[in-house]
Amino acid sequence: TEKSDAKTTKETLKWVHIAISNAKRTLLGNYHKIKRKYLQLYLNEFIYKLNRRYFGDKLFDRMVIANITGA
């Protein structure tokens, strides 16, 4: 744990705050009643989509390679 001032927080945690706010908006936009039982699954889906947002047309190629190599 590290205590930081407002400037450090604003610079360091900018993208963390953006990711959290995007997750909240996505979850509230897609799932109107979020049950605690399924929260981890919802977050897993959000992270999966977040990590693959820039793959675009390379997604199919990556999937083929992953299937061939067994990764």
Rank of each mutant, 00 (worst) to 15 (best):
residue 39 L to R: 11
residue 69 T to S: 09
residue 69 T to F: 04
residue 11 E to F: 08
residue 57 D to A: 01
residue 24 K to W: 04
residue 41 L to M: 12
residue 45 E to I: 05
residue 6 A to Y: 01
residue 18 I to L: 06
residue 23 A to N: 00
residue 11 E to L: 14
residue 63 M to Y: 15
residue 50 L to A: 15
residue 36 R to P: 06
residue 9 T to D: 12
residue 51 N to I: 07
residue 31 Y to I: 15
residue 59 L to K: 06
residue 66 A to P: 00
residue 41 L to K: 13
residue 67 N to P: 00
residue 70 G to H: 04
residue 16 V to D: 04
residue 21 S to F: 00
residue 61 D to P: 03
residue 32 H to Q: 09
residue 10 K to T: 13
residue 50 L to V: 07
residue 15 W to M: 08
residue 32 H to C: 01
residue 32 H to Y: 01
residue 17 H to S: 12
residue 6 A to K: 12
residue 8 T to H: 06
residue 23 A to T: 06
residue 68 I to C: 03
residue 70 G to Q: 04
residue 49 K to E: 13
residue 18 I to S: 02
residue 7 K to Y: 12
residue 69 T to N: 09
residue 20 I to H: 03
residue 70 G to D: 07
residue 19 A to I: 14
residue 37 K to F: 05
residue 5 D to Q: 03
residue 26 T to R: 02
residue 62 R to M: 10
residue 60 F to D: 14
residue 7 K to V: 14
residue 52 R to Y: 08
residue 51 N to A: 12
residue 46 F to C: 03
residue 16 V to S: 07
residue 29 G to E: 07
residue 64 V to I: 15
residue 66 A to F: 04
residue 16 V to G: 04
residue 44 N to T: 11
residue 18 I to Q: 08
residue 10 K to W: 09
residue 26 T to C: 03
residue 44 N to W: 15
residue 58 K to P: 00
residue 11 E to S: 07
residue 59 L to D: 06
residue 59 L to T: 08
residue 36 R to A: 13
residue 15 W to N: 14
residue 55 F to I: 00
residue 40 Q to D: 11
residue 71 A to D: 07
residue 29 G to L: 02
residue 46 F to Y: 15
residue 47 I to E: 10
residue 70 G to P: 05
residue 57 D to M: 04
residue 54 Y to T: 09
residue 19 A to F: 00
residue 17 H to F: 06
residue 2 E to T: 10
residue 59 L to I: 11
residue 22 N to K: 13
residue 53 R to M: 06
residue 4 S to D: 05
residue 43 L to I: 15
residue 71 A to T: 11
residue 68 I to K: 09
residue 2 E to F: 04
residue 47 I to N: 07
residue 33 K to Y: 09
residue 38 Y to A: 09
residue 13 L to H: 09
residue 25 R to M: 08
residue 43 L to G: 06
residue 17 H to A: 14
residue 22 N to H: 09
residue 48 Y to S: 05
residue 34 I to E: 02
residue 33 K to A: 08
residue 54 Y to P: 02
residue 31 Y to N: 10
residue 1 T to Q: 08
residue 46 F to E: 00
residue 23 A to I: 01
residue 6 A to T: 12
residue 24 K to Y: 07
residue 3 K to H: 08
residue 9 T to W: 02
residue 35 K to A: 10
residue 4 S to M: 12
residue 56 G to V: 02
residue 4 S to L: 14
residue 7 K to P: 02
residue 4 S to P: 04
residue 7 K to W: 10
residue 65 I to F: 02
residue 2 E to V: 13
residue 60 F to N: 03
residue 4 S to W: 11
residue 9 T to M: 05
residue 40 Q to P: 05
residue 47 I to Y: 09
residue 56 G to T: 01
residue 13 L to Y: 10
residue 34 I to W: 06
residue 19 A to N: 06
residue 35 K to Y: 13
residue 70 G to I: 04
